[in-house]
Computed example of a mutant assay.
Amino acid sequence: MKARWDIFCSVVDNYGDIGVTWRLARQLVVEHGCDVRLWVDDLRAFERMCPDIDVQVGQQWQEGVQVRHWPAEWPGAHPADVVIAAFACQLPPEYMDRMAECERAPLWMNLDYLSAEDWVVGCHRLPSVKYKGVQKYFFFPGFRPGTGGLLREAGLLERRRAFQQDAAAQQRFLQSLGVAPTAGARLMSLFAYENDGLAGWLDVLAADGRGTHLLVPEGRILGDVQRWLGVNSLSAGDIQVRGALTVQVIAFVRQEQYDRLLWCCEFNAVRGEDSFVRAQWAGRPLLWHIYRQDEDIHLDKLDAFLELYTAALSPAAKAAVVTLWQAWNADGDMAQSWKMLLEHWPEVSQHAENWCLEQGLQADLATALVQFYESWI
């Protein structure tokens, strides 16, 4: 019989949480033959990346996954063989009691946040707390051997490489989004949280000797873009030109479309966790806007990734990448740091591809989870 999996997702930051769990649920079904229920407490956030969702229905099937609404009053359900609490969310008390009543307790895992910090390797797969005799385990995604790896569907890198080598396919895809890149311009994407440093970056792009066509999916950064442009509102389809910079707003798209958008661009600014990983699989230079945390502890996480990511770069190229990322996440000088990066563009571009291929040698996250379950039973 197929293993039954319950994945619980409490939507905290609109799209990152549900983005990761939705990808994971589908991969477990398609590639590993699992029976998956995805419990989501905010179906409206889910609807943005899966428009077929009916937010009024508490139980429905989407792409082979049973999607269940997780309301304030628990509807009741028998626990699965494997239970995943995504990003340390708290399971419903009634469900936890039912786990304790099972003749054979399920494998209960806390799928934690992605981090490159050294301590993650030592904590991966360690037992955590117990609840009435049911043991919970830590499971950490990561970039190093000894972690759970990254979400990566079978054949993803081969599909990406073929797409990037097919100019006609890229053109057709961009046309489907209403995008006709400015001739000779650098195509870039911007998906970020609110950021005071954006104005300085857009200033230098507008004054650059080479044009930039900037694609901005609808999201939280749009207000900052509007202020810089001096317009009252922006919506999908709008195009504004300032000097060498063309800004185009595009609609929020499905995950598969967003992947291809990243593959089309020469540079991608991304945020959170899901888009951060997908930008790495694009094999193109990127800029990560990490989710801000109290007392700036997120900067430790940022520095840990930068130390790992830039290890193979020359000292000058490493300094350029680190300076840009730190400026973007700590209100630094984006104009000067962007100019520094452009000076090392060929090396940084090749490094992005090398990093992608290196990470692709590790087991993917879904496979690592299945292997842990198989060894546990």
Rank of each mutant, 00 (worst) to 15 (best):
L357C: 07
E347S: 09
P106C: 01
N232I: 00
A319C: 05
Q170C: 14
Y15F: 15
K301Q: 13
Q350F: 03
A25L: 06
A169E: 13
I7P: 08
A206E: 06
K301W: 01
E358C: 06
G58C: 02
Q59K: 08
P285L: 01
L222A: 06
Q66D: 04
G19S: 10
L28Q: 05
V67G: 01
A168F: 11
Q359M: 14
G178F: 05
R44I: 06
V67D: 03
P92R: 11
A183W: 04
W288F: 08
I290K: 08
C34Q: 13
A167F: 02
Q56Y: 00
D294M: 05
Q170A: 06
A269C: 13
R152K: 14
R125Y: 06
A25H: 04
M99I: 10
P93D: 08
F46H: 04
A116W: 15
A312D: 13
M1Q: 11
P145A: 10
L174S: 05
A330C: 13
G122Q: 10
M334G: 15
S375P: 00
L114W: 00
E47Y: 10
D13A: 11
R254I: 12
D259T: 01
A88F: 06
M188L: 15
P217L: 12
D112F: 04
P217H: 03
L365Q: 09
N195W: 12
A185T: 09
A335P: 12
A317I: 07
E374N: 14
V82H: 00
Q326A: 02
S314P: 11
L308T: 02
A311Y: 07
F8D: 03
G148C: 08
V65Y: 05
V12H: 11
F276K: 11
D52C: 02
Q293A: 00
D42I: 00
G360C: 08
R186E: 07
V231W: 02
L43W: 00
Y131F: 15
F276R: 12
P145F: 06
L361I: 00
I250L: 14
Q359E: 14
V249H: 04
W61P: 00
A185P: 05
M188P: 04
H124P: 04
G230D: 10
I221C: 13
I221F: 08
R48K: 11
D17Q: 06
P75C: 03
Q175P: 00
A312E: 15
L341S: 03
E117F: 03
R23H: 10
A335Q: 13
R186H: 08
F8K: 00
F139N: 14
E353C: 10
R161S: 14
R284D: 01
G58R: 10
V204D: 09
G58M: 09
G64K: 01
D118W: 00
V370W: 08
G200R: 07
